[in-house]
């Protein structure tokens, strides 16, 4: 049974690491023969991976534990993590080596990516626990100021997100797209590319691609230009 998490001062440096995958971080822990836990958070979910002398012995995520919990955590596109050396467990639900676990996690991620690329984007997937957010929404969720992001077709059908919030954002995004196209047509300045609405409480971003629209809502206190650049950087990542 896991010991309760202790919010105590950590020795050494605490900081943020960007550009490193979770697999890299876990490999570093393994190389350092780390014992303790690694708490990984993504959106409103939190998973814990337990190490003992550099090997993973247990993992927990919601109702999942063991290898399935570990693979689910590894499948997240982004998030935050922190080490808790004093948080340990006596459970031993994982017996595979660290190298095997990472390779298996990467294989599962490749399979999932391959199968999602083969599906038609116009189909709306059935809810999967958290209403099945699209990959792009998951990537953008690592930006703190972003409240919600979705992909939709040019006729307003939201892709891979059946939440009520997505429906509202999708409607506003479509409204903005139609207005932009109409006013652009009025002035004769070509195809619509992108729009930003600076709001008092929330900002709205809309990006056009060949067959889809990306609609993002963000906190009104955020700097619009910086956020626009950050969004473009994230969606430009492969």
């Amino acid at each position: 049974m896991a010991q309760p998490a202790l919010q105590t001062e950590q020795n050494g440096f605490v900081g943020a690491v960007s550009g490193m995958s979770l697999a890299d971080i876990i490999q570093v822990k393994g190389g350092n023969r780390y014992s303790g836990s690694l708490i990984v958070e993504h959106l409103n979910k939190s998973g814990i991976v337990y190490f003992r002398d550099g090997e993973i012995v247990h993992a927990e995520l919601g109702h999942l534990d063991g290898e399935e919990a570990f693979y689910a955590v590894m499948g997240w596109a982004g998030g935050t993590f922190r080490s808790e050396p004093k948080l340990s467990t006596t459970n031993r639900t994982i017996n595979q080596s660290l190298g095997f676990l990472i390779l298996e996690a990467l294989r599962r991620m490749d399979e999932a990516k391959h199968s999602s690329q083969q599906e038609k984007l116009v189909e709306v997937s059935s809810p999967k626990g958290d209403a099945g957010m699209s990959d792009i929404s998951t990537k953008l969720s690592v930006i703190p100021e972003i409240e919600h992001a979705l992909v939709m077709t040019k006729d307003g059908a939201v892709v891979d997100d059946t939440s009520y919030q997505a429906e509202i954002l999708g409607a506003n995004g479509l409204f903005l797209a139609l207005f932009s196209e109409q006013i652009g047509s009025q002035f004769g300045i070509g195809e619509f590319k992108a729009a930003t609405v600076h709001g008092s409480e929330h900002h709205l971003f809309l990006f056009d691609s060949k067959r889809h629209l990306l609609c993002v809502s963000a906190n009104g206190s955020a700097n619009v230009n910086s956020l626009d650049s950050e969004i473009r950087r994230v969606i430009g990542q492969k």
Partner: peptide, 9 residues
């Protein structure tokens, strides 16, 4: 709404 910034071709 405070401002629109719309980009076209």
């Amino acid at each position: 709404v405070k401002l629109y910034d719309i980009r076209f071709e």
